[in-house]
Nucleic acid binder design. Structure first.
Lengths: 186, 186
DNA sequence: CCAAGTTCGTTCGGTTCCAAACAGTAACGG
DNA sequence: CCGTTACTGTTTGGAACCGAACGAACTTGG
């Protein structure tokens, strides 16, 4: 390595239960600090690395074909499964703010995939519904999306999949506030 | 439920190894389609639900204090651990395109946290380095970030954490192209 | 009934995303 | 040496993100 070349993160892992080389290097370099919880760091960082990798791939290979954003897709999916939604609830389900969803829905409405109507009983509310065109899109796109999910799950055995799902459900419930002490302090 | 109220996704799970009520409802509603891989869907959807929840929380409680974006934080972290980086590599590590990183680095440079300099041997390249001010920020912010990671990991026992990490590493390697058949077709 | 407080969806300014285009630099091969 | 190909980081246009602000509608309590 010459004086002008820069260090690059390594990628290899000898065994899945052991830290990857990159994980080990991070630990070594961050070791100057105290009170770092390395197992937690490894666990959480791998969650969002997997999520990022899956999302990037799905966006590129499935959603991009219809110029569908992740959030747009999620919105269509929620409307498909649970029917018309109030904006605030739909925003919550998509994991974005109301302001963001407004923009996304404007795009989907322009494409004729959703419509927004005032709520019958409460003048503040807007109810979002999917159109027949929107239904056709999600019915076509979702199976393709799911096929990507299958390809991802192929990394593991059936038992491992179930175990991963079980652990993630536990973590999710915890993060969403059912037992989190950090949230109690807020 | 009156005619104007809309269906909302349920949240409860009886046991972590069993589908949550929301998962069961999705399966019921999507059942009209064929060839849906429900276990894979459960597994993958829980990965990005956890990732989203963690990210939203960390952004709100840690990164937002310094008006640091997720990508900005990741860039500082990579520079801190691995030293100066070429833009293309840094973009790769942050999981964004070079174009996006340009904008993020412009913001970080404005704050005096990074500097961009031409590479000594290759006029096309830019080398990104962290300043002393940037170092101070990441040394302060990272432990706070890690504390959130610990809080997340508290949902599981030590063995469960290790198992979750092991499974995620396997999935990640698979998704990143080491064995993926969907990638071979591209 | 009415003032004060709360909630709603939209707008706004700034930033982060993408893909595509671009100008500059480097590598390659005749 | 030079034309062609490949790679770089930045710019561009459009869309997705955030938090804050806003005006309209609703709720609450005296």
């Amino acid at each position: 390595m010459s004086s002008n070349e820069v260090a690059r993160p390594a990628r290899r892992a000898a065994k899945w239960s052991e830290p990857t080389d990159r994980e080990a290097e991070v630990a070594a370099r961050v070791g100057e600090l105290h009170d770092i919880d390395f197992p937690a760091m490894a666990m959480v960082s791998n969650v969002y690395r997997v999520a990022n990798a899956v999302r990037a791939r799905v966006e590129r290979e499935v959603l991009g074909v219809d110029s569908l954003s992740w959030t747009g897709f999620t919105a269509l999916f929620v409307l498909w499964v649970w029917g018309p939604q109030e904006t605030r609830h739909l925003a919550e389900e998509c994991g974005v703010t109301k302001g963001t969803l407004t923009g996304v829905l404007t795009t989907l409405e322009k494409r004729g995939w959703v419509v927004r109507r005032p709520h019958a009983d409460d003048g503040r509310l807007v109810v979002v519904s999917m159109t027949a065109a929107g239904r056709r899109v999600i019915r076509r796109v979702f199976p393709l999306f799911n096929r990507q999910e299958s390809a991802v799950a192929d990394a593991l055995t059936g038992r491992e999949r179930q175990e991963l799902t079980r652990l993630l459900r536990k973590v999710l419930a915890h993060v969403e506030g059912e037992g989190s002490s950090a949230e109690a302090e807020a």
